[in-house]
Amino acid sequence: MDAQRAKAILDSPEMIAVKLEGEPVWIEHVDVENGMATVQVGSNPVNTQTVKTARLEEK
């Protein structure tokens, strides 16, 4: 997905499912300018990764 869509999902009051390589993630921060997002993988709050937004899939 593009960075603008990732930011819209982050800012949305609705819960929108997002996956990273088939794993559910929560978007925690989006750097629109650089096309990067920090995501929490699964339900473990300490398991975070910073990835290109292009790797994220909306489900």
Rank of each mutant, 00 (worst) to 15 (best):
A8F: 05
M36W: 07
A37H: 06
A8K: 14
E33F: 07
P13I: 07
Q49V: 10
A3M: 11
I16E: 08
V41Y: 03
E14A: 14
T50F: 01
M15Y: 14
A6F: 10
E57A: 12
Q40W: 00
V30C: 08
L20E: 10
E58M: 06
N34F: 03
A17T: 14
K59A: 14
Q4C: 02
N44S: 09
I27Q: 06
M15Q: 13
S43D: 11
R55P: 04
A8P: 08
D31Q: 07
V32G: 00
E28V: 07
Q49T: 11
N47P: 07
M36F: 11
V39Y: 00
A3R: 09
D2C: 06
Q4Y: 09
L20T: 14
A54F: 03
T48K: 03
Q4V: 08
S12I: 03
N44H: 04
M36R: 11
K59P: 07
N34S: 13
W26F: 13
E23N: 09
H29P: 01
G35E: 05
V30T: 09
P24V: 12
K19M: 04
V39D: 04
A6W: 11
M36E: 12
E21S: 13
K59N: 08
M1P: 07
M15N: 13
N44D: 15
L20W: 14
H29A: 11
W26I: 13
I9Q: 06
G22M: 10
M1F: 04
E21Q: 15
G42F: 02
S43L: 07
I9L: 02
D2G: 13
E14W: 05
E21V: 14
E58Q: 10
E23V: 10
R5S: 11
T38S: 02
Q40P: 01
A3L: 12
L10P: 13
G35N: 01
G35I: 05
K19V: 08
D31F: 02
D11G: 14
E21G: 08
I16C: 00
P45C: 08
M15V: 15
V25H: 03
K52S: 14
K52Y: 02
W26H: 12
G35L: 01
V25E: 02
A37Q: 09
T48S: 00
T50A: 01
H29V: 13
A8I: 04
